[in-house]
Write a protein that binds this DNA or RNA. Sequence first.
DNA 1: TGCCAGGGGTTCA
DNA 2: TGAACCCCTGGC
Length: 295
Amino acid sequence: MKIDYKVLDDKIILNNVESFNPEHIFECGQAFRWYREDDGSYTTIAYKKILNVLLEDENTVILNNTNEEDFKNIWIDYFDLKRDYSIIKNKLKGDTTMEKAIDYGYGIRILNQEPFETMISFIISANNQIPRIRKSIEKISENYGEYLGEYKGKNHYSFPNPSELAKIKPEELREIARVGFRDKRIYDTANIVNNREFNIEEAKNMDSIELRKALMELPGIGPKVADCIMLFSFKRSETFPVDVWIKRVMEELYLHEETKQKEIGIKAREIFGEYAGFAQQYLFYYGRENSIGKK
DNA sequence: TGCCAGGGGTTCA
DNA sequence: TGAACCCCTGGC
């Protein structure tokens, strides 16, 4: 798929983009490190860069604070820009529910995030709340990441790499980042990744069954967290993470009865097939923003 | 004001 | 299968 863009100063201007809305992308639950600015744009930290994303108009997106080299090396893949989302949408629009969800979150794209950061972030997410998860990740970055600079009046830091985080003792993580009982899980997983017992580069080449199994052997990673990591940082778009929100949405809109988590994952793959991961994001955003299934 | 439930699940018995 | 779990916020 051809990408229509031009470079202007420190900006990349994306023209004629379909399916790209920063609000949908960042607030559909896949990422934690973004900040909504006063002008409605989003500033995000990834791959040791500070990037600002503005929806200029219906068909134009501006990537601020970057350059063509980073665009080609990082952001095209990060934003999944080579993928034609109209194909996915057409494939998924088999029922009125999904049609509504897609119309609502039409600008969602699944980001390709950094595996290690994604692993730790979703370990933190267990039995936790989004504002607190974000705070913990921010504290970890501030204290153990690299200073990247200031943007729009705020200092930004990279997420620490495995060798940096592996050094931090559980007690300190708990104290500084307020991660609670997840402290040891983070410490242990960071060390396992750091000493290559779990090798991220090798993991990229595993088939999905093997990868899921390997991830679930890590402390703090169960079925749901493993699925999130696979979908958001290992490009496994057939994966359908089942959290409490998706459980409610699926039960209310598709299954019409109480169903076990594992069963929901299986049914979802039957219904949505190879694009189950995209379906999950559309449903999550639609369901959560509209409080579907909430008692 | 103060108490209590509940949260992007995982782990351990 | 079920209880426990840090911590924090929102609701009463």
